[in-house]
Amino acid sequence: MTTRFVGDTVVLTGRSLRHITRSPDTIITTTLMPIAFMLLFVYVFGGAIQHGSGTYVDYLLPGILLITIASGISYTAFRLFLDMQGGIFERFQSLPIARPAVLWAHVLTSLVANLVSLAVVVLVALLIGFRSPAGVLAWLAVAAILVLCTLALTWLAVIPGLTAKSADGASAFAYPLIFLPFVSSAFVPTATMPGPVRAFAENQPVTSIVNAIRDLLTRQPVGSDTWIALAWCVGLLVVAYALAMRTYRRKFS
């Protein structure tokens, strides 16, 4: 059964990856907004923001990377919704395959697409002056955090993908996720925010994840933020996976 699961997942992942290579505009669209935010903040607002030492683009990039993931997973929900709508999801489910492979294929495709988008955004950041003294290990750690984040948010995206009644509904859930970084340490330090806002900002996952990535990229010693960030990512991943599977079983069983 496990070999079948792996084989079926590979076949179905190949199929949805082909969707992305045949319409690469989805990758361009998902990177467009984060890149626009990055340019806006670096060249318009950034000069007026007191963010401490280093260039503003160095400060900003971790938050932009999270926005990139949030914008990317809305396409995962959209692609899953299209499969549900077109009946091909049911066709797969009626075949003698390992059933969860259908969902895993979408999740793995989302991971690949998001990693490509993230690479594109980092490249643009490098072009406009982003520099990091981080070594290979630190970059690998950053990549690991981003992969965990993507997986967690992708499983979250599976839920609207399975249940949405319209294409807009399927992708709309990502908007709050895109705006969550604005009330965090992603764009400005939390110190200047008024009490309740600051309390929210400092205790929501984006801040610890952004701080963890920032520390790694600027070669700061790994602080407690890193562990909090990992706890958020893993916790969210477990909860989102459980909820997505429950939604799936309610629909097909």
């Binding site: 319409s23 009946g87 049911e90 066709r91 009626s94 075949l95």
Partner: peptide, 30 residues
């Protein structure tokens, strides 16, 4: 599921793949 085959109410084909790729996909899944 090994005994049946379903053709649903709306042609459940993958629009982005070619006709041949659709058939190969199902053959591989079987």
């Amino acid at each position: 599921r090994a005994s049946i085959s379903l053709a649903g109410q709306f042609a459940a084909v993958d629009e982005i793949l070619s006709g041949r790729e659709n058939l190969v996909l199902v053959a591989r899944l079987r």
